[in-house]
């Protein structure tokens, strides 16, 4: 299961990715043949965290819930619920194209499936579209298992958040 976590991670191109590496056959020859014949599931890479800064550190908190929260957590400018399917595998958050990676657990076959992610952000407009050295932007991602559903924007105070629904539709169309 994804484990709760709190860390600083470097964004690039306004993004931090959720990455799930599928388990591989233990025998290296079987693993190679499975990969060559397309029998190995591909690595999942979802640009789940959409930042205001172009690049640099953000503060990211990960929470895993039993069910949809009863209320929206206070203190966040932007809040949106999105759906994604998380397969079996090692789960981590990566700064795209960089060297920053944080592992947050392993999704078993029983745990894999459709999830809802509530994306919270504050500070997206502070250093919009620039590379920063210090973090002013915070994000919280809450996961709970739920059937696939439409994207719902619960708060969109920042100007950046206006672009989120179309962006989510883009990456969902490629999953």
């Amino acid at each position: 299961m994804i484990q709760p976590a709190e860390f600083t991670i470097s964004a690039w191109s306004h993004l931090v990715d959720l990455v799930v590496d599928p388990p591989q056959p233990k025998d290296p020859i079987e693993a190679l043949k499975a990969a060559q014949s397309g029998k190995t599931p591909p690595t999942l890479r979802v640009p789940l965290v959409f930042t205001g800064i172009y690049g640099g550190p953000i503060h990211l908190t990960i929470e895993v819930l039993d069910h949809e929260p009863d209320t929206v957590a206070p203190g966040w400018e932007d809040v949106a619920d999105v759906s994604l399917v998380i397969p079996e595998g090692k789960v981590h958050f990566n700064g795209p194209t960089g060297s920053d990676s944080h592992e947050v657990g392993f999704m078993s076959a029983a745990e894999a499936g459709s999830y809802r992610a509530r994306l919270h952000a504050v500070g997206r407009d502070l250093d919009y579209d620039v590379v920063v050295e210090e973090s002013k932007e915070r994000h919280l991602v809450q996961f709970w298992k739920a059937p696939f559903a439409n994207t719902i924007v619960l708060a969109n105070a920042s100007s950046v958040s206006k672009s989120l629904p179309r962006f989510v539709a883009m990456w969902q169309s490629n999953l």
Binding site: S13, H14, L15, D17, P47, P96, T97, V160, S163, M170
Partner: peptide
């Protein structure tokens, strides 16, 4: 250019080209 499109183009540069 459009923010969402710019981000998505940047995302796939890594997730479709660089890494795979």
């Amino acid at each position: 250019i459009n923010l969402d499109e710019n981000n998505y183009a940047g995302s796939v540069l890594n997730n479709v080209l660089y890494a795979p």
